[in-house]
Amino acid sequence: MLDVDCQVPSKGRWPTPPFDPRFPNQNQTRNCYQNFLDYHRCVKNMNRRGKSTQPCEYYFRVYHSLCPMSWVQRWTEQIKNGTFAGKI
């Protein structure tokens, strides 16, 4: 997993997502989907432990930078309806 502490930008500034060696190709669809899953898994685990979800913000910012909003809205709606295909 990526080191979240070194990825935190200065306050109020968020550059493009950093290079992820798991997704070296130009097509970033899988990167988008994986960061969406990682965010929701992170939030679920942190809530279960009773800890702050602040470390999950990295994944949130990355998938919001990479994913089309229509995908995010559809996936979020599917999660609410219990029909999302990914394992969270």
Rank of each mutant, 00 (worst) to 15 (best):
S52H: 11
G12W: 06
D5N: 11
T83Y: 08
W71D: 09
N35V: 01
P21T: 06
G12E: 11
F60G: 03
W75D: 04
P17M: 01
D5I: 03
C67V: 05
D3V: 02
P24E: 05
C32Q: 03
N47T: 11
R30E: 14
C56E: 05
W14E: 06
S10D: 13
G86P: 00
M1I: 09
R48L: 15
Q7F: 02
R13D: 09
F84Y: 07
R48A: 15
N81G: 01
G50C: 05
R30C: 10
Q34S: 09
L37M: 11
F36R: 04
P68G: 04
A85H: 14
Y39D: 01
Q73D: 13
D5A: 10
Y59W: 14
R48T: 14
L37R: 12
T29N: 11
R41E: 07
N31A: 14
C32E: 04
K80L: 06
D20Q: 05
P21D: 08
H64W: 05
W71N: 09
P68H: 13
N81H: 07
D3W: 00
P9L: 00
D3Y: 00
K44E: 13
G86M: 11
V4I: 15
W75S: 01
R74K: 14
R61S: 04
W14C: 08
I88N: 13
P18Y: 05
V8L: 07
K51D: 14
P68S: 10
L37C: 13
Y33R: 13
C56W: 05
R61F: 03
Q28F: 00
M69A: 12
T83A: 03
G12Y: 07
R41Y: 06
R61Y: 07
R13S: 11
S10H: 08
C67I: 02
R74V: 03
G50Y: 02
T53R: 12
L2N: 12
V62Y: 01
W71L: 13
V8F: 01
W71K: 06
M46F: 12
N27I: 10
N25H: 10
Q78E: 15
L2P: 13
R30T: 09
V62L: 04
L66Q: 08
P21V: 07
Q78L: 09
L2D: 10
Y63F: 15
D38G: 01
F60S: 11
R74C: 04
F19M: 07
S52Q: 10
P9D: 02
P21H: 09
L2W: 08
R22Q: 14
G86S: 10
Q7M: 12
N27Y: 02
Y63G: 00
H64M: 11
P68T: 07
G86I: 01
P55K: 03
K80F: 02
F60Q: 10
L66D: 02
K51Y: 15
S52G: 07
Q73H: 14
D38R: 12
K87V: 09
P21I: 10
D5Y: 03
N45K: 11
F60H: 10
V62E: 05
W14P: 00
S52E: 07
V62W: 04
S70I: 09
N35Y: 15
F23V: 09
S10K: 10
I79E: 11
T83C: 01
R22S: 08
L66E: 04
C42G: 09
D3M: 00
Q73T: 08
S10G: 12
V43F: 06
P9N: 03
Q7V: 02
P68W: 11
T53E: 14
N45Q: 15
F23S: 06
G82E: 03
